[in-house]
């Protein structure tokens, strides 16, 4: 079948979306981790000049959209991951449907709040 099997949603429930999104955000966050470590290499310049020049680029209005998307990935992966861990431990399996709805709402609320913080940091 191939990897396209992870992206079949016709006739599927929200659970399949959650699974695929968890996987995609996981990959995005892995790439971000590598980028983050690379980025922090600029701290090795002890004058601080390299680091400050990079911060000037990334903490900016133009970069805000990436921050917001990254936060979406992080928050969704964390909140949905917590739901999965609960079920994997055998907790609240009977409530899996309401739990999915509640956790999606939580993810959206946390995402909007964190995005607002990022927005105000860039001088909003």
């Amino acid at each position: 079948m191939g990897v396209s099997g992870w992206f079949r949603f016709k006739g599927r429930s929200l659970f399949s979306w959650a699974f695929t999104f968890q996987r995609l955000t996981g990959v995005v966050l892995l790439i971000y981790l590598l980028a983050h470590l690379t980025y922090l290499s600029t701290l090795l310049d002890t004058t601080g000049a390299t680091y400050e020049s990079m911060i000037a680029i990334t903490v900016s209005r133009q970069f805000l959209i990436f921050d917001i998307l990254l936060i979406l990935c992080g928050v969704f992966h964390g909140v949905n991951g917590f739901r999965i861990i609960l079920h994997e431990f055998g907790i609240a399996y009977g409530y899996r449907k309401p739990l999915l709805a509640i956790f999606i709402v939580i993810a959206v609320v946390v995402w909007l709040y964190a995005s607002y913080i990022m927005y105000s940091l860039t001088g909003g």
Binding site: F19, G90, Y93
Partner: peptide, 23 residues
């Protein structure tokens, strides 16, 4: 298994296979 839980959604006998796999 990464708990997509779609199996439990479609089971015509409501066997809850996802739960069985977790246990």
């Amino acid at each position: 298994c990464h708990l997509a839980m779609e199996c439990s959604e479609v089971c015509p006998k409501n066997v809850e296979p996802a739960k069985a796999v977790q246990l």
